[in-house]
Design a protein around this nucleic acid. Sequence first.
DNA 1: CTAGATGCTTGATGAACTCAAGCAACGAGG
DNA 2: CCTCGTTGCTTGAGTTCATCAAGCATCTAG
Lengths: 156, 156
Amino acid sequence: MSRTPAPHPAPETPDLKGSDPTHVDLLERLARAAAGYYRDLAAAAAVQGLTMTQAKMLILLRQPLPMRALAGLLACDASNITGLVDRLEAHGLVSRHLDPADRRIKNVVATEKGLEAVRVIRADMRATSAAFNRLDDEGRRSLYELLGRLHPDETV
Amino acid sequence: MSRTPAPHPAPETPDLKGSDPTHVDLLERLARAAAGYYRDLAAAAAVQGLTMTQAKMLILLRQPLPMRALAGLLACDASNITGLVDRLEAHGLVSRHLDPADRRIKNVVATEKGLEAVRVIRADMRATSAAFNRLDDEGRRSLYELLGRLHPDETV
DNA sequence: CTAGATGCTTGATGAACTCAAGCAACGAGG
DNA sequence: CCTCGTTGCTTGAGTTCATCAAGCATCTAG
């Protein structure tokens, strides 16, 4: 995605031996985890000729979703989704299907090619995979459980 | 940041009673956490008249950083940083300082106004704050510790 | 002191994003 | 029925984000 062979000056994060982490402490580490995830995602998506935004959308499309819902999930204006889906459709990765129950709605569906792209991208996210491997089984279980509690299904 | 008053169709995540989470399971929940964080950040940044990208950069500027380092951390081309810093500088949130030791380098420094903007944005991230409050003290400690192990300082 | 790296900027181009406006289709209340 | 307000998507204009190719200045080795 970019030529960034540069050395990393590391923004540190406090160690907190003893006291409980504040919300700001947590925000900083969550920011770091999120940035790391997206950095890796962007790189893996670029290999497939996709931008990070396109990859984010494809990943959401485990089930068909109305464009409006995509706008909600991606936290952007609905008009933005039109162009996004246009481009993904041009690549043959998604298609639009009129909703029989409500003809205003267009459901976006990932094609087989789209689903495959997601699989390839995920398999290619080596930095994140390496990060997971830095934890032991117990750590991975805890992380999975904690992230689940952070964002229960209702919250999306 | 946008008008998205829509109901959320929830992409679920498996429950896994018993077996260990696979990397794909973890990727899905991490994706969700990252998306939630950025959704909240974008909204809070918009209140301050900043885009999410500008907010991301400001948050990195706890210490002065050379533009090249910013490119590395934001995983984008160095030429992109020029415009980004231009716009933040126009808002009075950062300034460029020539590095005395190496006159090619321009260190970007957050102004007091910039630091304040970060504080306000963080205080405004209610959804994320609510998510943290969904955990108990022990959960927050574990999450903090696990995220720290996921991305140790070297990894940025 | 030259030769090659490295750090930043510029210019051109395309993607992502917002807002305002518009059309089509739904869903009430007369 | 049939307006009327709302909702879902698209279009068009304009900004920001992001890339690449090129260029200039400065540092660093040899």
